[in-house]
Amino acid sequence: MSKPALPDARSGGRFDWNLLRTFLVIVQERSISAAAAKLHLTQSAVSQALKRLEDQLERRLIERHNSAFTITAAGEEVRRAAEAIHGNVSQLLTDVSQTEAEAVGRVHLLVASRIHSAVYDEFWADFHREYPRIEVQLDVLPSSEIVTLVQQRAATAGIALCRQIPKRLENKVFLQQRYALFCGRNHALFGRHDVRMDELLGENFVSFASDALGDSLSPLTIFRDQRGFNGRIVAASSQHDEVKRLLIAGFGIGCLPEHSVRADIEQGRLWRLPPGEGVCAVELHLLWHRDAQRTPAEMAFLKHFRDFIDGYSMTERLASRDGGA
Rank of each mutant, 00 (worst) to 15 (best):
S2Y: 13
A5L: 14
L6Y: 09
D8H: 07
A9I: 15
S11F: 05
G12L: 05
W17Q: 14
N18V: 14
L19V: 10
R21S: 12
I26N: 00
I26P: 01
S31E: 00
K38D: 09
Q56I: 14
L57E: 01
E58F: 05
I62F: 01
E63Q: 08
E83A: 11
Q91M: 10
D95F: 04
D95S: 10
H116C: 12
V119H: 05
E122Y: 07
H128C: 02
P132I: 00
R133E: 06
E135K: 13
S144Q: 11
I146G: 01
T156M: 03
I159F: 07
I159R: 04
I159A: 08
C162S: 13
R163N: 13
I165N: 05
V173I: 15
C183A: 08
H187Q: 02
L189T: 06
L189D: 00
G191S: 09
R192E: 03
H193A: 15
V195Y: 06
M197V: 12
F205N: 06
S210K: 04
D211V: 09
G214I: 10
S216V: 04
L217T: 03
S218N: 12
I222F: 06
R232D: 15
S238I: 12
V243W: 02
V243A: 05
G250L: 01
I253H: 02
C255K: 01
A263Y: 09
G268R: 01
W271H: 06
G276V: 10
H285K: 13
R290M: 11
Q293C: 11
T295L: 04
M299W: 06
F308S: 00
M314W: 10
E316L: 04
R317G: 05
L318P: 01
R321N: 08
A325C: 09
